[in-house]
Design a protein around this nucleic acid. Structure first.
Length: 782
DNA sequence: GCTACTCGGGG
DNA sequence: GTGTACGAGTAGC
């Protein structure tokens, strides 16, 4: 018998001689290994008294379990192979009959990917690309994780810029690889260069084969790319298919696997494929507005992509000229991707360890999935049975159910000075904990003791989910305590992971696809949230504060000459009376803020405001920010006007600025690029039932003999004329300078963008147009 | 207000 | 594969 220590990074299973064998791929003494485990039996749970018989059932055990607050006797029904489960589960009220086999193994054996385990057994013969170890026993050694070898991949294709990228037609012309002390750009045309990392082969197919070889030699544990689920890996596979060669990157010699669905996923057996774009997009969902590699890298790494004109690549390749800079560009993309993956790896690691699923999966999971898989893992620890997923009709029913959300205090439109903002720290998680909001503790028909909930209350004994969230919150507080004064990336990442899950549980209760879906819980949480908010607002007013705004968990007070310490003292008093771990905390102090009116009314718009801090940094919420189908002139005017107002410029100054923009538009001096609206064509032109402006443009482009299809970016300008917008839309090159419809841009773009701002500073937006009326009169009489 | 549609990331 | 999928914003009616 041999003993090895290893860190699993991937889990799957195979049927060998009619029995399932779990395979854990990972690292052992710096080398890739596949640890096989025989003898883990597939099973599911069945409720109810009735007898279940099926020839596929190998044995049935009886166990005492809890299920949604009830003690039940459940039958553990075993079958020979995982695929037997779907065939047998229909015969009873089954539970946990859809937990994938490899994941079931991880949960039951308490194996957390990336941690260190020891296996007893022996190496066996195989044709795999790594050694295969047959384990008799697997046990945890430590939670320590080993260093992972990361390889980033990026491809360039031969695509006419602006056209749809078609894998069947457009060859791959360069492939960049970037690892630790490893960089390479493969290509199949010779060109002069001083770059040491270029390797030239004779054809695309040779390049694909060389790529496969390089991956095999480098032996990465992690393969990463930017949007590689939807682009690089499927593309590599498609090109390999075309040449009837293979893209068998899997350690078990399997192909790249593409999961079809709404969201594409590419998988490689034994190597964790991380599409770092997906992870970034979830992690920074609210923090970033753009998720292009250049912007994300700029934000997280402080450096952007290599500056090239990508639209020149196509011709450059044809003419075999100027290719060096594109090779550099290609490598830079791979390098940035590599560095993003390295930088975010601690976060992926901590999420993996917390949720207990392999990194390739944890990195792609939505918030509700993270919560769900965490709860499934915990359920096993708590001897709880996992509820089933909703069926189609149940899901549809849930989709239309709605309920009251957070409390929003309606602001009085205006410009304010010296604003202090307080937040309830983790409002919903702390409510779940403090008020024991758990599906297994619901008591219907009884009001809560504090009088907040009517017709429902929650028992005193801690429930499953409220216990789980309690643990999560407490662990997070301990870690934050430990991390104090230190710069520990993994501690920071761990508290982030805990926060992510804690913050997602409320949304999970109300998510239509959730196993522990519970609208009563979701409603109770928001009811408590509204109660506590209203309570604070009322008390603030009582002691003489001017409450200007409040939304769900935050409240803004105008100091109006009061010292900030008066506000702190007030909040201290509030905190003493809040139940459990609930707490109101200081968020920030702002020197000015603007709140606008709702459309067509006098009342203050909710969720639409801008604040400016001492350093002049703006915090803009709810205004039209960066939407590409809004013209630049509208976006820029709004941004600038907001800035001026918050900096304390007079209403005359701001009005003059906007009037200037209007004047420029009307006097036809605005550059065409400022009035261009861009939209992409997504499908075949003929298949549109309705014709929006950009489709009308696309049709005309077709008539002119231009190739227009899915992927084409259509830019258009609304020109002067009669009828609906689509009849007046023209291609930017068709319009002469100043041919745009000034009135459209003034009234439909600029004015809506700044109108409400102008009202706040005492300007009737109509006044901004008056110049034209005068002009009209002049021309009439002139 | 509802429905149809687009977009994101990638070249 | 013992599974599975988005989510927000806009134009047109």
């Amino acid at each position: 018998m041999a003993k090895i220590a290893f860190n699993p990074v991937e889990a799957t299973y195979k049927i060998i001689d009619g029995s399932p064998v779990v395979e854990l791929y990972g690292k052992s003494s710096g080398k890739q290994v596949c640890v096989q485990f025989h003898g883990f039996e597939p099973y599911f749970w069945a409720l109810g008294e009735s007898e279940i018989t099926d020839e596929k059932i190998t044995k049935i055990e009886k166990h005492k379990k809890s299920f949604l607050g009830k003690e039940v006797e459940a039958k553990k029904v075993f079958v020979k192979i995982p695929a037997d489960v779907p065939a047998v589960r229909e015969k009873s009220d089954s539970l946990e009959a859809d937990i994938p086999f490899a994941r079931r193994f991880l949960i039951d054996r308490k194996i957390t990917p990336l941690a260190t385990y020891e296996a007893d057994g022996a190496f066996v013969e195989s044709d795999y690309k790594c050694e295969v170890f047959r384990a008799e026993k697997i046990g945890i050694v430590s939670e320590e994780i080993s260093e992972q070898k990361v390889l980033a991949v990026d491809i360039e294709t031969h695509t006419d810029f602006g056209k749809e990228i078609i894998p069947e037609n457009d060859p791959i012309i360069m492939i960049a690889l970037h690892g630790n002390n490893f960089r390479k750009v493969l290509t199949w045309k010779h060109f002069d260069n001083n770059l040491g990392y270029i390797e030239v082969v004779d054809s695309e197919v040779e390049m694909l084969e060389r790529f496969r070889e390089l991956v095999e030699e480098y032996k990465p544990d992690i393969l990463t790319g930017y949007f590689s689920d939807g682009f690089d890996l499927p593309y590599l596979k498609a090109r390999a298919d075309k040449y009837r060669t293979n893209m068998k990157l899997g350690l078990d010699n399997s192909e790249i696997m593409l999961r079809k669905g709404n969201v594409p996923v590419a998988e490689i057996t034994g190597i964790a494929h991380i599409d770092i774009f997906k992870f970034v997009k979830r992690m920074f969902r609210t923090a970033f507005t753009s998720f292009k590699l250049n912007d994300v890298a700029q934000e997280l790494l402080g450096q952007g992509k290599a500056q090239v004109k990508l639209e020149e690549l196509y011709a450059s390749w044809n003419e075999e000229k100027g290719l060096e800079k594109f090779a550099e560009y290609n490598l830079t993309d791979a390098k940035l991707t590599y560095e993003l993956c390295i930088k975010l790896w601690p976060n992926i690691t901590e999420l993996t360890k917390m949720i207990g699923v392999p990194p390739a999966e944890a990195s792609r999971m939505s918030f509700s999935q993270l919560v769900e898989w965490y709860l499934i893992k915990e359920a096993h620890e708590f001897n709880e049975l996992v509820p089933n997923r909703p069926d189609f009709s149940e899901e549809r029913k849930r989709r239309v159910e709605s309920y009251t959300g957070g409390y929003v205090y309606e602001p009085t439109p205006g410009l304010y000075k010296d604003i202090v903002v307080y937040d309830f720290r983790s409002l919903y998680p702390t409510i779940i904990s403090a008020h024991n909001i758990s599906p297994d503790r619901i008591i219907l028909g009884k009001d809560s003791e504090d009088g907040v909930l009517k017709g429902i209350s929650f028992g005193k004994e801690k429930g499953f989910i409220s216990t789980v969230i309690d643990n999560v919150i407490n662990r997070r507080l301990r870690i934050k305590e430990m991390a104090k004064g230190k710069e520990d990336k993994s501690l920071e990442a761990r508290q982030q992971a805990l926060k992510t899950v804690a913050n997602s549980i409320y949304g999970y209760y109300g998510f239509f696809g959730a196993r522990w879906y519970n609208l009563d819980c979701a409603k109770a949480i928001t009811a408590y949230g509204r109660h506590h908010m209203q309570d604070v607002i009322e008390k603030a007013k009582t002691v003489g504060f001017n409450v200007i705004y409040g939304d769900t968990d935050s409240i803004m007070l105008a100091l109006e000459g009061k010292h900030i310490s008066a506000a702190s003292k007030f909040v201290e008093g509030i905190n003493k009376k809040l139940p459990g771990i609930m707490e109101l905390e200081f968020e920030g102090l702002y020197k000015s803020g603007i709140f606008v009116a709702t459309k067509g009314r006098e009342t203050g718009a909710k969720k639409r405001y801008a604040l400016m801090d001492e350093e002049g940094k703006m915090k803009v919420r709810g205004f039209e920010t960066v939407r590409r189908n809004l013209s630049l002139i509208a976006k820029q005017t709004q941004q600038k006007a907001l800035e001026m107002i918050l900096q304390g410029k007079t209403s005359n100054e701001v009005a003059e600025f906007v009037k200037d923009v209007v004047k420029q538009l009307r006097s036809k001096q605005t550059e065409t690029r400022m009035v261009v609206i861009k939209t992409q064509i997504s499908r075949d032109i003929k298949s549109y039932a309705n014709i929006p402006p950009h489709v009308a443009i696309a049709k005309r482009m077709q008539e002119q003999g231009k190739k227009v299809g899915p992927g084409t970016m259509v830019s258009y300008v609304v020109a002067e004329g009669k009828g609906v917008i689509r009849d007046r839309s023209k291609l930017p090159e068709e319009v002469a300078a100043g041919e745009y419809d000034a009135e459209y841009y003034v009234r439909n773009q600029v004015l809506p963008a700044v109108g409400k701002l102008m009202e706040v500073i005492g300007y009737n937006p109509e006044e901004l147009l008056e110049e034209r009326q005068q002009k009209k009169l002049e021309t009439f009489f002139g």
